[in-house]
Design a protein around this nucleic acid. Sequence first.
DNA 1: CCGGATCCGAAGCGATACTG
DNA 2: CAGTATCGCTTCGGATCCGG
Lengths: 120, 120
Amino acid sequence: MKQTYCTAHLRSISDTLELIGGKWKLLILTLLHSESPMRFSEIERAIGTITPRMLSKELKELEQNELVERRVYPTMPVSVDYRLTDYGYSLGSVMVALGDWGKNHRRRIMHQPTIEAVNR
Amino acid sequence: MKQTYCTAHLRSISDTLELIGGKWKLLILTLLHSESPMRFSEIERAIGTITPRMLSKELKELEQNELVERRVYPTMPVSVDYRLTDYGYSLGSVMVALGDWGKNHRRRIMHQPTIEAVNR
DNA sequence: CCGGATCCGAAGCGATACTG
DNA sequence: CAGTATCGCTTCGGATCCGG
């Protein structure tokens, strides 16, 4: 019974990783969580190191998984923005947990001397 | 000021993803979170689809980042086990948040007809 | 039992240039 | 502004064989 529970739990984690895994998706979701909607170029600038190609691909996948909604406005030229869906917002606790731990981790790293510093 | 806050937040998330990103690390950590210590072959069987090569590599990286501790016992043949460090356990809230969301997500998927079913 | 060594294809990701 | 197209590098990850 314990085994069954475990494999089910592991599978649900694997499923989640397929949705939000990779280098960019969680960053995009976190951005949109703190500020929605955002335009394509706003996200691009906010992340700073993502290429348009990757941003476009990631947004498309997030949209297909219904975590992000894309809206197009018939202005001239066309303007587009992105926002979290309700389902996207339901990832809030994951983002907060990861962000909090990450901040703590960064502090931990800062206070450790680097290997290079030790070897000198 | 908001911009500063955001980029710092994004960087801490990127840092975290470098530690626990990828296909396997979170699965291994979650396993060890529910049961420590575990032996190499136990983890291998519990995950079911990981190759020894990958498991070895991932465990080594987790150990270098002080999330997992490796202990060797001078039996014959040598036996080894792995357990979470205290720092590893500090990721508990992240694992729980992700696992909970994943279970919910799996239920959501189950209740949606697949594309193939719709097209028939 | 616990891995290491090697090979190899697949996937992720980046750089650059281009378009409506 | 909001992407697409092409290319190529690098990493991921599986398969297989080997060793203490």
